[in-house]
Design a protein around this nucleic acid. Structure first.
Lengths: 344, 344
DNA sequence: CTGTTAGCGCATTCAT
DNA sequence: ATGAATGCGCTAACAG
């Protein structure tokens, strides 16, 4: 079970018959080393099973890695949770010789996001961004990558950009999960199911809707899914929309809210006195959602753990810089299901 | 957002007007320092907001911390997952100057567990144990604690012992969660619900049963919960039990398996051709449970993440040794719910 | 009771 | 193209 004492850089140097500095050059792929020497060192590394000691590496590193979180501006609860998680990790970051900064941009404006991203160029080693799958944003991301920076997308991906990692959930699967819960909680009752999104132009929202529709159409044919409403993730807009929906659809027995703005939805449900009757499935376990789960207005919440996401983004950002390995198992972001009984 | 450059031990020494060694003595609570000096140093630490650099500390530490995992013997799938997770973390451990060892003992025999625990005394700094809430085991744990070792209970706790931490889920809440899923999936259908445990003498099993009963009795009065069967977590024993149960109860429409031995249960359900009809809720997302979820035999699985548990136990074990802070948020083990759509 | 000193393993000048 | 030397912040052995 024990690993015998690790080989050090010095061991490798001796084994390869070269000096410390040379080994360092080949390990960090710096130029100016003869090909023959490179091989010699590589062999020695392999023979000794050398792995750099991360503690020593950190200690010796003269300047910190700089990472910037580019997060949506505004007072959305989930975004607030992300922001809090970043500040909660300041100590950890400092222990690992990394400095953290947060920038806020308007997510619904791709040009501004792109601009915000570009402005980090040269000032950071890595940027972690809640992206938006839009040409301007993709271009900005690729520009940073070309400049040698690390780019990690968080929560919302830009898959066709050249970002190094995406940290977040599979939103299609999340939509499917919501559908399964909806269908099973409704257990055979026929009727209509409403869907409220923030904006279907947002890739994650579109994906959730897609997954939801997939399962509803194949497994719960007795339920009629209504066309999605778009409330811009804003309670002030979702509330009237929801009020109309309820008035127009007396047979509505289920509601899937795949974005934010849930306070408005809950308010309309209560006003119509249908909060208990309608099965309400939403996303993100905010303090507010927690209360609604306990009150019985919400029946299930699909969640992505903001803390886990921020830590994972940090670990992956670092691993690119230090080539420390990551345990892929630990970095997989789960699709959490919460009901009133398993709240953390 | 940035932390200014951290104060070092040397800064503290200078600020307090003493030497490095004295500061070290104070910080590590070693004896032989005048009370006045202790205060001087403490003040300097506070004034400078000093936090030790964990990398430097690890690098300088001459010998590794030794931690021993005392896990149940046998071929239970969940225990196999725990074991695998320990070996998966060997690299991490080595990076943190800790050595890992695994010992296997028979969980169902408290005397053997106690003996196994005692045998680690002096050979390890910390032991992580899947405990058993039994007087002999509690005594053995307390003995290790008295000897200055760290003790972390994993998955199964011994609450009245003096263990430093418990890493695992709230099993009462897990039972309640199972009941809510059962009740809602059954959605008003009246009938009987069976319960299969490993042994109600095991505290975690008893707690799950308790939580399950709580919710069933208060929220789903149309469902009749049958007395629990005990299958020793063994498919060879659960299968015949289950076969009898099905024969005796044609109105059985739900089954909660709160321990292991699920293969036997599924086999009996299939044999009686009632796998699709009975709502089957079980624990632990083993490779086997995964398949049954996809096949539709199992309807939901309550899980505790073995990887998360092992890493958390490790971090907490280390934090006691190095007094590095832990993010409590990160150490909370979630009660995961899996359906066929959100499988990792 | 308190101070001095020598590394831990690596990154990085500065020489050669 | 390669090597020697210095120091990161801390622990622990050794001197006073």
């Amino acid at each position: 079970m024990n690993t015998t004492t690790r080989a050090t850089l010095n061991d490798v140097a001796r084994e390869a018959g070269v000096s410390l500095a040379t080994v360092d050059r080949v390990l960090n792929k710096r130029p100016g080393v003869h090909a023959r020497t490179v091989n010699r060192v590589a062999d020695a590394v392999a023979r000794l099973g050398y792995r750099p000691d991360p503690s020593a590496a950190r200690l010796a590193r003269p300047k910190p890695h700089r990472v910037c979180f580019v997060l949506p501006a505004g007072n959305n609860s989930f975004v607030a949770m992300l922001r809090d998680q970043v500040t909660d990790n300041l100590g950890w970051a400092s222990d690992h010789r990394v400095t953290l900064e947060i920038a806020a941009v308007d997510v619904f404006d791709p040009a501004e996001l792109a601009e915000g991203l570009r402005s980090t160029k040269g000032n950071f080693d890595t940027v972690v961004v809640v992206a938006h799958d839009h040409p301007l944003v993709r271009a900005a991301i690729d520009e940073l990558v070309d400049a040698g920076m690390g780019v990690v997308t968080l929560v919302s991906d830009a898959p066709s950009s050249r970002r190094h990692r995406y940290v977040g959930i599979d939103n299609v699967a999340a939509g499917r999960t919501a559908a399964t819960l909806m269908g099973r909680f409704l257990a055979g009752r026929p009727g209509e199911v409403g869907v409220v999104a923030g904006s279907l132009a947002l890739r994650d929202h579109a994906e959730r809707w897609f997954g939801f529709g997939q399962v509803m159409a194949s497994e719960f044919l007795h339920l009629k899914v209504l066309p999605p409403l778009e409330g811009k993730d804003d309670s002030l807009r979702t509330e009237p929309l929801m009020r109309e929906l309820l008035a127009a659809h007396p047979r509505l027995i289920g509601l899937y809210s795949l974005g934010a703005g849930n306070r408005g939805i809950a308010a309309a449900l209560r006003e119509a006195d249908r909060a208990r009757d309608v099965v309400f499935v939403a996303h993100e376990l905010t303090p507010y959602a927690r209360r609604e789960l306990l009150s019985g207005t919400m029946d299930a919440v699909i969640n992505q753990d903001a803390g886990h996401e921020v830590r994972s983004a940090l670990r992956q950002a670092l691993s690119r810089l230090t080539r420390e390995p990551v345990l892929s198992d630990q970095e997989r972001i789960r699709i959490d299901i919460y009901v009133k009984d398993n709240l953390p």
